[in-house]
């Protein structure tokens, strides 16, 4: 039964999009943080390693363009999925949707009870509340960092109708929101999805799209039950990820995680020196 030991969780489009997103995010953080923490000893060194502030600026803006690219690509995909794949029968507040619902609040409450040993672990469906938070945090983050970044990228254009202080505000928002995003991804997202003891050191599902069926049943019993009831599980069953995919996914995933953790150390150093 080795061939059927896995369930497909992410399609290739989402897997590729996540790699693009993770890579451009790290590129943005590496090239941006030396400015925010320009008073630290590591900042000038990192800036030189990146080829100077001008080149770092080009890399930063390329990453920004990639970010806008995946952002709109996702919106188009979501619209296409709802309209053509689901023929407008997609339940916006259903279990397969990223839209938060009452159950998520109950799950937060239930999780804290479980953490404190006051109750059982809540049963999750396709998306847990922390996964939904990650998803909407990107929406919010890309919106806020993107808009403020565009102001700072094209000041001559925006200066035609925005007052000067809007650029000061944009600079504060861009930098603070970037700190929030970087800190959140490198601490919270990394722990929630990769570093927690069940997953340590890395959950490769986002790269391979496949999750072992036992793990799937244990972690998302509601989705598992639903798939069984609706007779959809058989179609999602698949074999283990091919070796070539693992050979690509594991080192690249490790590179992303290690780079992120190193950046986290630099940011924490910057906050302590500051």
């Amino acid at each position: 039964m080795a061939e059927a030991a896995y369930v497909r969780r992410f399609n290739p489009y989402h897997r590729v999009l996540h790699i693009i997103m993770a890579t451009s995010f790290l590129g943005s953080v590496i090239t941006g943080m030396p400015l925010r923490y320009s008073d630290t000893p590591w900042a000038p060194w990192l800036m030189r390693a990146l080829g100077g502030y001008e080149q770092a600026g080009y890399i930063h803006r390329i990453c920004a363009a990639v970010t806008f690219g995946y952002f709109f690509s996702h919106l188009i995909f979501a619209a296409y999925y709802i309209a053509f794949v689901k023929k407008f029968r997609f339940r916006i507040f259903g279990p397969e949707s990223m839209v938060p619902r009452l159950k998520d609040l109950k799950d937060v409450y239930g999780s804290f009870r479980w953490f404190l040993g006051l109750g059982p672990r809540p049963e999750f469906d396709r998306w847990t509340y922390w996964e939904k938070f990650d998803y909407w945090a990107v929406f919010w983050g890309v919106g806020v960092i993107g808009l403020s970044g565009l102001c700072l990228w094209f000041p001559a254009f925006f200066g035609r109708f925005l007052p000067g202080w809007a650029f000061n505000v944009a600079a504060i928002v861009h930098s603070d929101e970037a700190l929030l995003a970087a800190g959140f991804i490198f601490m919270i997202h990394f722990f929630n999805t990769h570093m927690r003891p069940e997953k340590f050191p890395m959950d490769t599902v986002i790269f391979t799209g496949r999750v072992p069926i036992d793990e799937f049943r244990r972690e998302r019993p509601l989705e598992y039950g639903r798939l069984v009831r609706e007779g959809r599980l058989a179609r999602l069953k698949t074999g283990p990820p091919p070796n070539w995919l693992l050979c690509l996914a594991v080192p690249y995933g490790a590179l992303l995680v290690v780079t992120g953790l190193l950046l986290l150390v630099l940011i924490l150093l910057g906050m302590l020196v500051y």
Binding site: F115, G117, D176, G183, F184, F191, R196, E198
Partner: peptide
Amino acid sequence: MTILIVAVFAFFVVHTFLWAYRTLR
């Protein structure tokens, strides 16, 4: 921005530590 940052981290850092504590136990 400061309130946002502090609120998000305060919530999730507590969340993360408690989670780690429960899993290890």
